[in-house]
Design a protein around this nucleic acid. Structure first.
Length: 197
DNA sequence: CATATGATTATG
DNA sequence: ATAATCATATGT
């Protein structure tokens, strides 16, 4: 069965539209060690120049953020706290630096590989399975995402997103974004989207 | 060149 | 509650 990619125009919308739409989609990473994938369960919208919580606030363009200024449907990856990577999807249009941070996944394929990569210590009970990828740093570790995948085309064949499973609107809830207190009013906005099946 | 810090996680 | 840990951003 062929894994169908989400079309490029899926990403050519504002982060606020793409973020909730990304829930239930399947994020897949094909590596030499094997294939790992998971359903997206949590995402946050970052709206660019006007959004005080965004890396591109004020239109700030640096070596780190340049991918956000590029065409949509590509990966924006950065290192945080000196030890964890965060995976984002670039959205909107070229020159419009918006992105969606993928905060959590529900593991699907390659769970064994995820366990190895994360050096998971606890017992593998179905109940604790979600702990494998329930944070931005965790899911990057589990999927083997690092700087190497910076700028990757998400309609390509290494790191890509497929339609996954549909999510009913009533199963989506919104919350304020995490750890952006410094952003004043912008921190309060319900731009975090969580899928609760 | 020097310094401060973060869209986090694991552990006590 | 707090340490871990470093690329990036920013200032001098």
């Amino acid at each position: 069965m062929l894994s169908q990619r989400l079309p490029p125009d899926f990403y050519a919308r504002s982060a606020l539209e793409v973020a909730p739409d990304l829930l239930g989609k399947l994020l897949v990473h094909v590596t030499v060690e094997g294939i790992v994938s998971g359903y997206i369960t949590e995402a946050e919208a970052y709206m660019g120049p006007e959004d005080k919580a965004a890396h591109t606030y004020g239109g700030k363009k640096t070596k780190r953020t340049q991918a956000m200024f590029g065409p949509p449907g590509h990966a924006y990856i950065y290192l945080i706290y000196g030890m964890y990577y965060c995976f984002n999807v670039v959205v909107a249009t070229e020159g419009q630096p918006q992105a969606v941070l993928v905060r959590a996944l529900e593991p699907k394929d390659g769970i064994n590989l995820m366990l190895t990569r994360r050096r998971f210590k606890q017992d593998l009970t179905p109940k604790k399975l979600y702990q494998l990828t329930n944070g931005p740093g965790k899911l990057c570790q589990a999927l083997g995402i690092s700087k190497e995948q910076y700028g990757y085309d998400l309609t390509g064949n290494k790191l890509f997103i497929t339609p996954g499973i549909p999510v009913a609107p009533e199963n989506i809830c919104t919350k304020p974004r995490v750890n952006v207190d410094y952003a004043g009013e912008w921190a309060q906005l319900p731009w975090r989207f969580v899928w609760k099946p």
